[in-house]
Design a protein around this nucleic acid. Structure first.
Lengths: 99, 99
DNA sequence: ATAATATATTTATATATTTGCATTTGTCTA
DNA sequence: TAGACAAATGCAAATATATAAATATATTAT
């Protein structure tokens, strides 16, 4: 299938995925989750110095749109990239800002 | 410089770039502009079957955020990708929707 | 069962985005 | 210069998103 022949539904799915990533805090989250790393909500909340509820909200968006997966272990929930190649997107765009 | 050490300004710039791309119609536009293709506002407006002003608006966003460049030739304005590698982003995400 | 810790959800407010109509600006041709 | 065509802009209504405070839920340990 040619990439130009995406249906409106597929375009929307792609847009939702990118929209999920397209936020400063969520890009920062993805930068921390490269190389298969797994972090808890609290760890991210402390690393980014943003509210716990805001952190959970952002992680929920990334999970809902298929960017992250999560796994509960006891009291903690670990979040990690669903597809390793997704960090390429962040790398690509981030590098564009470092020129 | 490590990609993890992006400043808040750089994170915002990266987010703005992704936000510019993260829209169904704008992804469709980028899909038409691969391989160095150049299209006018009217051509895109007819291909996508959306209003001329809406088309121009989307193109303006993409240009403003550094995704596209434009070149006036007579009555027409041609739009094209500013950096060829940006279509990788669209390809990457689009492919995620074709699984 | 109760307390402590971690995460998620609800809610409200503020802010931003999308869209199309109407208008304006720019460019070419007669 | 007037008319036609192409593109851009101003505006307003509808819709979506971001944030944080408060609250709720889940899990573990005592």
């Amino acid at each position: 299938m040619n990439i130009k022949d995406l249906t409106i539904e597929q375009l929307e799915e792609a847009a939702n995925m990118l929209k999920a990533i397209a936020h400063p805090m969520r890009i920062a989250i993805l930068n921390y989750l490269d190389d298969g790393k797994k972090l808890t909500v609290t760890e991210i909340h402390e690393l980014l110095k943003i509210e716990q509820s805001t952190t959970s909200h952002h992680l929920g968006i990334l999970k809902d749109k298929g960017v992250l997966s999560s796994k509960r272990e006891g009291k903690n929930t670990y979040y990690f990239l669903k597809h390793a190649n997704l960090s390429n997107i962040v790398n690509c765009v981030s590098k564009c800002t470092m020129g």
